[in-house]
Amino acid sequence: MKSYLTPVNEIEKNWYVVDAENKVLGRLASEIANRLRGKHKPTFSSFIDNGDFVVVTNAEKIVLTGNKINDKKYYRHTGYIGGIKEASAKELLEKHPTDLLMKAVKGMLPKNKLGRAQLKKLKVYAGKDHPHAAQQPVELDI
Rank of each mutant, 00 (worst) to 15 (best):
E94T: 06
N50F: 02
V105F: 02
L100R: 07
L101V: 09
D71E: 11
H77E: 09
A59Y: 03
N67V: 05
A89W: 02
T98Y: 04
L93A: 02
V54W: 01
V105E: 01
G66D: 07
K103S: 14
Y80W: 07
V54E: 00
K68S: 13
Y80H: 13
L92A: 02
E60Y: 09
A59S: 15
D71R: 13
K61Y: 10
I69L: 12
T65Q: 13
E60S: 15
L64K: 08
A59K: 13
M102P: 04
N58G: 08
E91Q: 13
K103T: 09
D52I: 09
A89D: 00
F53E: 03
L100A: 07
L93W: 02
K73Y: 06
I69S: 01
N67A: 08
G79V: 00
A104I: 10
D52V: 10
L92S: 01
V54L: 02
S88R: 08
G107E: 07
L101A: 06
D99T: 11
E94G: 00
N58S: 12
F53V: 10
T98N: 06
A87P: 06
L100D: 04
D49E: 00
K85N: 06
L93Q: 04
K72E: 14
S88Q: 01
V56S: 02
D71V: 07
T57C: 08
N67T: 06
D49V: 04
I81C: 14
L92V: 05
L64N: 10
E91T: 08
V105I: 15
A87T: 14
Y74F: 15
G82H: 07
A104P: 06
F53G: 03
K106V: 11
G107S: 04
E86A: 05
L93E: 01
E86Y: 03
N50Q: 13
E91S: 05
F53Q: 07
N50K: 11
E94H: 04
N67I: 02
D99W: 14
G79W: 00
F53N: 13
K95Q: 14
D99M: 11
G51V: 00
T78A: 02
A89M: 03
K72H: 11
I84S: 11
D49H: 04
M102G: 05
E60P: 09
E94K: 10
V63K: 15
G83T: 14
E60G: 15
T78C: 00
T78L: 02
K95I: 14
K90T: 05
K72R: 15
K68Y: 09
I84F: 12
A104V: 08
L93Y: 02
V63N: 15
V63G: 11
L100C: 09
Y74W: 10
G51A: 04
I81F: 13
V55Y: 01
M102N: 11
E86M: 08
A87Q: 15
K85Q: 11
V63W: 15
K85W: 01
D52L: 07
T65N: 14
V54T: 12
K68E: 14
